[in-house]
């Protein structure tokens, strides 16, 4: 049966790749990135300078990207996963160490994002963008100071709260409010966080993902749990919005560039990564998409749009940085989180 499954998958894979048309692997690289996460001009500039064709495709979640890579149907040269997913892919030997002799521009990356828990020696990843998880609020709709996750349990805001429909992020909110680590593997702590979220449910208008941006711009709710990059985007469109990292602490996330183990053109991938780490290129990307770059030089050189620099949450202080925690992949314990969050939504 196993063999049969493999043969069947191969048949489908051959069929699909056959349709896509293989191009010469030496002069092209396959890049797999989040949707709307790059300045398209940058890709063109790279192609012109290096004579390497970039075949660009996008994914919408770390997990769907992981499934694509782990099942091995398509071959990519550069991926842009987040921290915990990089950790998981390193554990499962899906990544290839980067030869940093070919990536000297790694020196521009801020110390803050080097040597984090997901890749302690920085052998596999080159940080791209980073951000935090926090509360986006509409200043015309709140009547108190928003500086704590507790605001999301305030009955005054019943039906005016958007939560983020992602188990790790929603559980992180509850775990942090209870004073626990957002990587907790203690079942009692998880259960208490789950109960807190169930208690919150009547106040929540909806559990949303990307649509939260449009909804908050339209003034549909007073409070929403969002990523700082999305917050910056919405604040650009609606001046009534503000963003805060709650005092209990929150999540710091880092999206980094990595090379999968089966890359066809690792040298091309490294050239691309090095190119992306140039301060001017990093600034072009940040100015275009609004997410903060991990490139310290780009910030120091003043290459970033001043309007972005002024946005709350675009950059953080050292004090805020110390309150943040990076997500770690929990291995088998993931199931406990999934079940807890399914119970919250299914109750």
């Amino acid at each position: 049966m196993k063999k049969f499954a493999v043969i069947a998958m191969l048949m489908v894979a051959v069929f699909v790749t056959g349709c896509a048309g293989q191009s010469d692997s030496e002069s092209s690289i396959h890049v797999f990135n989040w949707g709307n996460y790059i300045n398209p001009d940058v890709v063109q500039m790279f192609e012109e300078e290096y004579g390497i064709t970039v075949i660009y495709s996008t994914f919408e979640s770390n997990e769907s990207m992981y499934t694509t890579i782990a099942m091995g149907g398509n071959v990519y040269d550069v991926l842009f996963p987040s921290d915990y997913m990089i950790y998981r892919m390193i554990q499962e030997e899906l990544l290839r160490p980067i030869n940093f002799d070919n990536v000297p521009n790694i020196s521009h990356v801020s110390e803050r994002f080097m040597g984090l828990e997901f890749d302690p020696q920085n052998r596999y990843s080159a940080p791209y963008k980073w951000g935090t998880l926090g509360i986006l609020y509409n200043t015309t709709m709140v009547n108190s100071v928003i500086d704590s996750w507790e605001a999301l349990w305030n009955p005054d805001y019943a039906n005016l709260i958007f939560m983020y429909n992602s188990e790790r992020d929603s559980m992180a909110v509850a775990l942090k409010l209870l004073g626990y680590s957002l990587n907790s593997t203690n079942e009692d702590e998880i259960n208490r966080a789950r109960d807190l979220l169930i208690e919150q449910r009547p106040l929540v208008r909806a559990y949303v993902t990307d649509v939260v941006k449009d909804l908050m711009i339209a003034g549909e709710a007073a409070l929403a749990v969002v990523y700082s990059g999305d917050a910056v985007f919405t604040m650009m469109h609606n001046p009534d919005l503000n963003y805060v990292i709650p005092r209990e602490g929150s999540n710091l996330w880092v999206d980094a560039m990595v090379v999968p183990h089966n890359a066809n053109n690792p040298e091309g991938a490294e050239a691309f990564i090095n190119f992306m780490l140039r301060p001017e290129i990093a600034a072009m990307n940040t100015n275009f998409i609004g997410y903060t770059t991990a490139n310290a030089t780009a910030l120091e050189m003043g290459l970033i749009d001043p309007a972005l620099m002024e946005m709350p949450g675009f950059d953080i202080t050292d004090e805020e940085y110390r309150r943040l925690e990076v997500f770690i992949d929990l291995g088998e314990f993931r199931d406990v989180y999934t079940r807890a969050f399914t119970t919250v939504l299914g109750s």
């Binding site: 997990e63 499934t67 449910r201 208008r205 909806a206 949303v208 939504l345």
Partner: peptide
């Protein structure tokens, strides 16, 4: 708004997220 998790969402979740 994600509050009405149906069997389709559950299947999607198992394949894409979990």
């Amino acid at each position: 708004g994600g509050q009405f998790i149906l069997i389709g969402n559950l299947i999607e979740q198992q394949f894409l997220l979990v």
